[in-house]
Design a protein around this nucleic acid. Structure first.
Lengths: 250, 250
DNA sequence: CGTTAAATTGAATGCAGTCAACTTAAGTGG
DNA sequence: CCACTTAAGTTGACTGCATTCAATTTAACG
């Protein structure tokens, strides 16, 4: 079931078959399905388990008292929502679906067993956690420094390259099941302005966007326009170093 | 030496004397001093050790090719710069000082020993890591949704409450050794606008700011204006639950 | 085919940026 | 300790990117 997670973690370091089986087991105990635009967990709730996205898109978000809403990150298939959340007493943000979503609830004891018995998974989850933090930092830069055009361009680069790592793209195109309002909530722009920026990107032939499908005919060109530097995704098989090290027994 | 770190971790769960000694040992092997406005580590460098701020202020930042600079987070005394950063091959951001800084370099083996032999420290570092991530999320909201006035107000609340947790405030005031340019780099505002916002906050008697000292006569009022909800700092002694649980032997 | 959500367009407004000059504070060396 | 230098803070005028409001078109869906 959790092919996307396994595939993603293997970007960091190869997992053994046993590691894979352990992940499959953990991800098959409790599978739930949510419709589009539903809350998986709300701000203030106590986290009970780790959610693993198997299918569909979700997001973290926070809402201010007056209704303003910020999408803090997107969860794609293979993404884990905070392997260690239950260290905290309550959620400081909500997790909601974008599309309909199939996810696995992994119990805390299950997570502990996974990391206790599988050092390679532990390391890979650390990598996952650090990359998630790096993405959050990059979003900070995006919102703080980039113009509207750059912001949307940057987000589209990320939302193409991340799924590509788990085999969810076809050539230069991928699914983008996100409304313009949601793009605005993620980039701090109004939906009206998102629309205008998308038109500008289209007219410059940097993107093709019809329905829920995004194509990027010249990714490098879009990256240039968006000042996108892929280094923050740490995709360069960091694990090679790991294999040579003494940290993880072969 | 690392009283601030110990004090901070104890907000989460009480540490034993032995835990404290282990932290003191780890933090005294190699201590370095930096002047103000220097780089501790640059983007692209390989992380060699964990930095623990003993004294002074530092920050993470990222710079775009054209010079635009975003401060991603502030490091105060007691803050650890990514306990597991060496899982990654290279830094995706820089760490620079704000004031002159005294910091301890903790070697990776030292970190591993610390977490191997002290489960309570491990848990407390997890809490630290999760709170750091929560702060980064809140900054995302800050930059994406709040107005200039709210942004600065929110940041000032955070920069008062965080040091208060480690004993670095006196009554309603604390040090704020940050220029208006740096406040702008952190909030995505121009220095000119930061200046005007600060004047507005002063004229509403929400802050007193002279030199490097900040006073907040009515914290709740400032929190209201800034839409500041303290929950994301997770200060409510999460450890109580920990003590009752089976995860950590008493 | 009708209903609702999403996308698009135009016009008017405003928050924040830029540029440039000036003042004040801080730091340094004679 | 003061003169000099540089950094930090402040002010005004002008500009512009992005928002808001409102209307309209298009697409999605039962």
């Amino acid at each position: 079931m959790p092919q996307h997670l396994i595939r993603k973690l293997q970007q960091f370091a190869p997992l053994s078959e046993e590691d894979g089986r352990a992940l499959e087991d953990a991800a098959s105990r409790k599978v739930r399905i949510f419709g589009a635009h539903q809350d998986v967990i709300r701000e203030g709730d106590a986290p009970e388990h780790v959610n693993l996205i198997l299918e569909g898109w979700a997001c973290r978000y926070k809402q201010l008292e007056d209704g303003r809403r910020q999408i803090i990150s997107f969860f794609l298939p293979g993404d884990l929502c905070d392997p260690h959340v239950f260290v905290l007493r309550e959620m400081d943000h909500a997790i909601g679906t974008i599309t309909s979503v199939r996810l696995a609830e992994i119990h805390r004891d299950q997570m502990l067993r996974l990391t206790d018995e599988h050092p390679r998974i532990t390391q890979a989850l650390w990598w996952e956690t650090l990359v998630t933090a790096a993405i959050q930092r990059e979003w900070t830069v995006n919102l703080g420094q980039r113009t509207g055009l750059e912001r949307i361009g940057h987000l589209l680069c990320e939302l193409f390259i991340r799924p590509r790592g788990v085999g969810l793209t076809e050539g230069d195109s991928c699914l983008l099941p996100v409304t313009q309002v949601e793009l605005g909530d993620a980039t701090g722009l109004s939906n009206v302005h998102v629309n205008r920026v998308l038109q500008e990107l289209r007219s410059r032939e940097l993107i093709v966007l019809r329905g829920k499908r995004l194509s990027i005919p010249d990714l490098e060109a879009l990256q240039r326009v968006a000042l996108f530097n892929v280094n923050y995704l740490h995709l360069e098989r960091e694990g090679r170093r790991l294999e040579e090290s003494h940290l993880i027994p072969g």
